[in-house]
């Protein structure tokens, strides 16, 4: 199982994502200007501030050469996980429904919180138990998810702990097919007891063994 982790100018969580993926398989960096995905089995679009978040979060990254390939990969059924800024990019790219808006409080938030697994049938939640609570950190300024209607909810903020005003406490969603998942909290920062939780590994472990469609 080989993961590809995208690196845009302004990404800042790609190294943690890479190391997290390496705990369950092999992983390599995919440079934004190179459309070649190198035959990876899954793609992680990591957190950060791609292209400085200029114009609108994720708006410019969505048109990078690597994203054209990621979009084609996702449409063929390949597993794609977007974390935080990666979630924003996948929404802008049309791979996931909806959009991310500035937090209701307008503040950058950074805290450990619990998210509840709502759907255990996606490429990145198969290894989770129904309604399982995962302790994962969130850190973002534009995490207020706007749902354009009925969406496939993958994760919700648990215990009424919605930190950003997101619709229906949604922390993460999946596409209809379930192979593309995005969430605002950072599973790649919850993979070692040293930082208090290893719950994030469940997402990456879920993707292991999924063959490319």
């Amino acid at each position: 199982m080989r993961f590809g982790v995208v690196r845009f100018p302004g990404s800042c969580d790609e190294v943690d994502a890479l190391e997290a993926c390496r705990r369950v398989g092999d992983a390599e960096i995919l440079w934004h200007a190179d459309p070649d995905l190198g035959g990876v089995d899954a793609v992680v679009v990591p957190g950060g501030f791609s292209y400085g978040d200029y114009l609108r979060v994720g708006a410019i990254a969505r048109f990078s050469p690597v994203m054209e390939s990621v979009i084609a990969f996702a449409r063929e059924g390949g597993p794609v996980l977007g974390i935080c800024n990666g979630f924003q990019v996948l929404c802008e790219a049309g791979l996931l429904p909806g959009a991310l808006l500035p937090n209701v409080g307008l503040r950058f938030l950074c805290r450990q919180l619990d998210i509840e697994v709502v759907d255990t049938d996606t490429a990145f939640t198969r290894a989770c138990a129904p309604a399982e609570a995962l302790s994962i950190p969130a850190k973002h300024q534009a995490g207020r998810y706007h749902a354009p209607g009925d969406v496939r909810v993958a994760f919700r903020y648990a215990h009424d702990g919605n930190p950003n005003g997101s619709s229906n406490d949604i922390a993460g969603v999946a596409n209809e097919a379930g192979n593309v998942v995005g969430l605002m909290p950072h599973p790649e920062h919850a993979v070692d007891e040293l930082t208090g939780s290893t719950d994030g590994l469940a997402l990456l472990r879920s993707a292991v063994g999924l063959a490319r469609a």
Binding site: L55, A59, I60, F63, A99, L101, H146, P148
Partner: peptide, 8 residues
């Protein structure tokens, strides 16, 4: 396509 996101 780019300057605005018509959804929001």
């Amino acid at each position: 396509k780019l300057l605005a996101n018509p959804l929001i």
